[in-house]
Design a protein around this nucleic acid. Structure first.
Lengths: 356, 356
DNA sequence: CTGAAAGCGCTTACAG
DNA sequence: CTGAAAGCGCTTACAG
């Protein structure tokens, strides 16, 4: 069971190593007959080129790195599914870098850079400092962000359509007859929250419902805070009949607050969340929420990265021959792509007709 | 910003590449003074050896592979945390192989083997066919299983102490005064379920409670089945006052069944689960359950794998010089290690004193 | 269209 | 203790 190398294949096929290499790399300048013969030998012997050797010779690593901060683990399952489904059809493998420090992944990036193994990197970003990523990009390593916070960065990114998601959620509440709808907002420093809030307001405005600013409360995404805020809201004479929470865990808190006040969900209060984390199907009552398209985001991000990698290597090759165009790192090309993927409203048991 | 190589370091330190290499690999036969000088140059220039080059030269890949079948994604967050925390102190990186086919990861293994990138592999196994893994092992690639089902395989594995976990859960119920305790069992073909069932029975027996076989029902881990079974159980005149479910999702079903019958949890019925998946903290009432030590399992598995890798390379080196001892693949050494890690009972709101 | 040769960046006997 | 040389398995100009 000796390891079969390119030399063996060359000998068995009666050609040179060069030719085998050309066949492997799909060079067009190989005689079809020769190619067929080589291919036959390759498959017969189950030959697979050594990834390390070819990486070394090519000077280009066969890996895509995925950086996963601890905080984002809840999302990584479907995300990774999407990423894996596109990467598995390429010669790349996925290296997983887990960042144990949630706020700063500079150490992880150093390690990654040092190993020189990454053709490109996918990062699930939350609230981290971005500088290390920008540095990475500046060094010519393509980066794409899976942007859970919707922040604006000078890097290509994929994110959910937060505005549309929120709009749809509130539209759903309006359709059920609700007019007094509270917004339990996340940190408004996060662009995703700004977008969700705009969706909330626009849905209301379009339905002719005047905006009552006192109905928007800042939970900071903290469940205890959220619970307290909703409790206060429910004490008012003109209490809301529905709440739109900027994420699922604060939606749970809203339901807890209703229980605290002896109110039933959805009979007395409807609640809708955002994210659709796994628990939301199990909570009682099951939560109506906006599902983020994580799997699709993973797929899309992977495809963008692959494209960036090939254009990167193309541009660096042509850099000398052509007049230095293209979006080379450091260059001031077009702004990086930001793709927004549609969300889905998952209607479960926490929303119902407005009480009369 | 040219890539600095071993040649640069050698020149700058005034030594040969060989010497630099020896320093990098911590060879004892380098003059301390020389070593210091080389190290200084290395750090000053931020030099990090190319992983691919050294892999090629050494003939040993710098990666640990982790195979994650889709089904097991729920566990992978804490598991990976554990794995990452030990791997990050080694020169290895983690390659993530996601198996899209839940029942057969042969294709993934083929790919992994083909790339020749894995020094060892960690697999989270569920209900898959094991043959590909045994083949892998036979080819000399160390494998360790993170054994979620407790199956007996001819491979080293790490698993939760299912027996003790179940015993403790039932003990908790007994301490609360319960005597009629049902077991909502998973598939008894799974060793983990057999162990959980034994834990259940032994706790009962030790407490002097006779075993009533009609109180054990087979849910097959299917929530709808579980719900129906518990519903029937609760209809009986001598209905149980508590149920021990072999996993969390069927525990949720048991709570649903109680609601179906107008029974309150925990006042009328106590429920305890097994696993402690994230939802269990959010369910109403929050579920008392046995927490599997996933993070510790990941750490332990990673350490076992590292040990296997080094003894593997050691034994293949000494194979000619020594008399061929050691647990070489295919050899009939001692049976593979199976480590059981302790679980923790998480007491939340779904269990309470037995009704009088 | 194909082959001989040099090279990718390291490691490892082998001399000294 | 250190260096020169060959080699790991591939790729890529360069000839032909």
């Amino acid at each position: 069971m000796e390891k079969v190398t390119i030399r063996d294949i060359a000998r068995l096929a009666g050609v040179s190593k060069s030719t085998v290499s050309l066949v492997i790399n799909n060079s067009p300048r190989v005689d079809p007959e020769t190619r067929g013969r080589v291919l036959a030998v390759i498959t017969r012997h189950n030959y697979v080129p050594s990834a390390t050797a070819s990486a070394l010779a090519k000077g280009r690593p066969p890996f895509i790195s995925m950086i996963v901060p601890g905080l984002t683990w809840r999302l990584v399952a479907p995300l990774n599914y999407g990423v894996a489904s596109v990467i598995e059809r390429t010669p790349y493998e996925i290296i997983l870098y887990t960042s144990t420090n949630d706020h700063d992944y500079a150490p992880v990036i150093d390690r990654m850079l040092a190993s020189g193994l990454s053709a490109g990197v996918l990062v699930i970003n939350q609230d981290q400092t971005m500088q290390p990523l920008l540095d990475l990009h500046a060094q010519g390593v393509p980066v794409v962000l899976i942007n859970t916070l919707g922040s604006h960065f000078d890097l290509p990114s994929v994110e959910a359509d937060n505005y549309e998601g929120a709009y749809g959620a509130v539209r759903h509440l309006l359709d059920l007859g609700h007019r007094r709808i509270a917004s339990l907002a996340g940190p408004m420093t996060y662009p995703c929250c700004q977008d969700r809030q705009r969706g909330y307001q626009d849905a209301l405005t379009e339905a002719g419902v005047p905006i009552d600013a006192s109905l928007t409360q800042q939970s900071g995404f903290q469940p205890p805070t959220a619970r307290e805020l909703v409790r206060e809201l429910l004490e008012r004479a003109d209490r809301p009949t529905a709440v739109f929470a900027h994420n699922d865990v604060t939606a749970y808190a809203a339901m807890d607050a209703a229980a605290d006040r002896g109110l039933r969900v959805p009979e007395d209060l409807s609640v809708v969340g955002f994210d659709d984390i796994p628990s939301s199907a199990h909570v009682k009552p099951a939560l109506t929420t906006v599902s983020q398209p994580f799997e699709a985001m993973g797929e899309h991000a992977a495809r963008m990265l692959l494209a960036a990698i090939s254009s990167e290597s193309a541009s660096s090759e042509s850099a000398s021959s052509e007049s230095g165009e293209g979006s080379a790192p450091g260059g001031h090309g077009p702004p990086p792509a930001r793709v927004h993927l549609p969300t889905t409203l998952i209607v479960r048991d926490s929303t119902g007709p407005a009480p009369s």
